[in-house]
Write a protein that binds this DNA or RNA. Structure first.
Lengths: 351, 351
DNA sequence: ATGAAAGCGCTAACAT
DNA sequence: ATGTTAGCGCTTTCAT
């Protein structure tokens, strides 16, 4: 890349004049301006954001750390973050820990070293905020995690607990009594919040879910959900409905059901959480708890930028409502029991 | 953030000593080293990559431009890019044009201004490479696009045309004679390559696909595929199989089929392209042309980094093989015709 | 209307 | 073993 010196030289003026001609912060003779414009054009000159950042202390770049960019939920969220950041003139460095908790510290430090103007910790480990180095002054926003884990940093999140309750209401309303749970990673507070809301609401309905009908997926991924679902459905054939900690786990459950010849929703209702885009499009369409993903991204960026440029700071509500989206993976509970016998036989045949 | 000056002051030494103590490029008294280490710890000091980049001309950051980060194909590809970049010490600035072609120039210029060490143009418009400014010296790698469009920049891509041929072979082998096509955006060369491979191979099999049985989705997205599929399936009820330009379009087709009460794969075989992760997991699992997405990302980064640090440059094959993955969305062609009558009636009832 | 020079945080000669 | 200084590309006083 050519520098401002090259432009100055080619135009036969000083760098100061070039700088001002480009920024317009000082009058420059029309004639001179033209020569400079020509030089800029010829060289394809772009001011180095690097050098500007050195001066201003602003890189105009946000850092976003997510656990798994392959998870469509984070893909959609990042998409919202990027477009919100972009519209305010910020770029976004995306870093994925690939679910490796030991990567988090490194990635956070890398973002800090790159001097990003703000850090978005999205769906990370609950102690990720602890990796922010001591003297770090720039804003940190903790997104889609429980505030308990945010070390005092501002938070934007959905009402996970309420989502769990809504899911419980839905299943009860459909008459399900034998209900199972595919919980998320036990160590993650959002998973715990969803689980707690669900279990507590089931209890309220007089249908507490015993431990034997719950199993935790080790990760918020489809394969992890598949494995857990397979185990739970095999062990608990009487279940007529399952609450899944997120949509990917729910897809794992659907897949397991299909392997076990369980028809969804006739024999088994499945409800997810997140409402990622594909959930409305594949068969069966997934009944799920809708998160306002785009708004989540927008508010996260707004919060970060607000801290960067304090001014007309209109308050940002950090808690987003969730809602139930009923699609075709849930239905009223069977009145008679499922033919458990044949299912077991099927399994045996399959193996 | 604290600077190297703060550390030097706190440790009571010069910045040079701090620099060398940290880099180990010059011996430093064990005693001094300890005082420096303490100061670093206390201040949470991290060397500013910004300042280092000014000196070395290396930001240790790659810029990746994709059209749509919500598309799981790009999510998976970016995931591979990031992890490959990360393992070589590079961060990644991800920029999504959100399918707005007019955004491309801006985004490319932004990446250049941020002085990224290399630019990965992934699945962009065929003229995106033209947006690289005149004096740009750093490597540019064009990924998942046809080389015709790469302006001489190195390319990494799958063999799209061959993918089309394999798909044609598969459908013919299943006995399909009434075959339709949901092509991708007509302006994109990869879409054209897939289409050409498919059509040409169908011709070879003696089953040319007339224009009336083809329709182009305007974008590589599900909604776009849905719309096109709905139109094609309504107009051409005799079709027993459809080749879709990518998996998302194929999901649109599945959705349209379901709306029109067409059973897949009994009444209609659907084949996609890309083999995104979900394609193996949702019902029906999608028969599709597999791209080695991870390898695509790995080689793109390898190519970029190789240009950055010329040395033991082992050649990188820019063309990746594709393969057919047969799942449950394709089946042998019906021998008798589909009850076209009733389907039309259904449609009319629906409207 | 235009220039010269300082300085952002760091590294790497060049001293001592 | 440690310190001094120039300079990366830019903006911004402070001159002229």
């Amino acid at each position: 890349m050519s520098t401002i010196n090259d432009v100055a030289e080619l135009a036969g003026v000083s760098v100061t004049t070039v700088s001002h001609a480009l920024s317009g912060k000082r009058p420059v003779a029309i004639e001179t301006r033209k020569r400079i414009a020509d030089a800029v054009e010829r060289l394809g000159y772009q001011p180095s954001q690097l050098a500007i950042a050195m001066l201003t202390g602003r890189t105009m770049t946000l850092g976003a750390l997510v656990p798994d960019i392959k998870n469509p939920f984070f893909g959609e969220l990042l998409s919202a973050v990027e477009s919100a950041a972009d519209s305010r003139g910020y770029g976004t460095i995306v870093s994925s820990t690939e679910l490796r908790r030991d990567h988090e510290r490194r990635q956070v430090e890398m973002l800090c070293a790159k001097q990003v103007d703000a850090i978005l910790l999205i769906g990370c480990s609950d102690d990720a905020a602890g990796f922010i180095p001591a003297g770090w002054k720039a804003p940190v926003v903790v997104v889609d995690q429980m505030p308990d884990s945010s070390q005092g940093f501002p938070t934007v999140r959905s009402d996970h607990e309420r989502g769990g309750r809504i899911a419980a209401d839905h299943l009860c309303q459909l008459g399900h009594r034998e209900v199972g749970v595919l919980a998320g990673p036990p160590t993650m507070l959002v998973a715990a919040a969803r689980l707690h809301g669900f279990l507590d609401q089931m209890k309220t309905h007089g249908l507490p879910v015993p431990r034997t009908r719950r199993i935790a997926a080790t990760q918020f991924t489809l394969p992890s959900g598949l494995k857990a679902a397979h185990s739970l459905l095999t062990r608990r054939p009487e279940l007529t409905a399952i609450f899944c900690a997120n949509d990917l786990i729910a897809y794992g459950a659907l897949h397991a059901a299909s392997e076990l010849d369980i028809d969804v929703p006739r024999d088994l209702s499945v409800i997810g959480f997140d409402d990622i885009f594909v959930s409305s499009m594949v068969q069966p369409t997934l009944t799920t708890i809708h998160q306002e993903i785009t708004e989540l991204g927008r508010r996260s960026v707004a919060l970060a930028v607000q801290a960067l440029a304090p001014g007309d700071a209109q308050p940002i509500d950090p808690l987003l409502e969730v809602s139930l989206v009923v699609r075709s993976s849930t239905a009223t509970a069977r009145t008679q029991d499922r033919p458990t016998q044949s299912r077991t036989m099927n399994n045996e045949v399959k193996r």
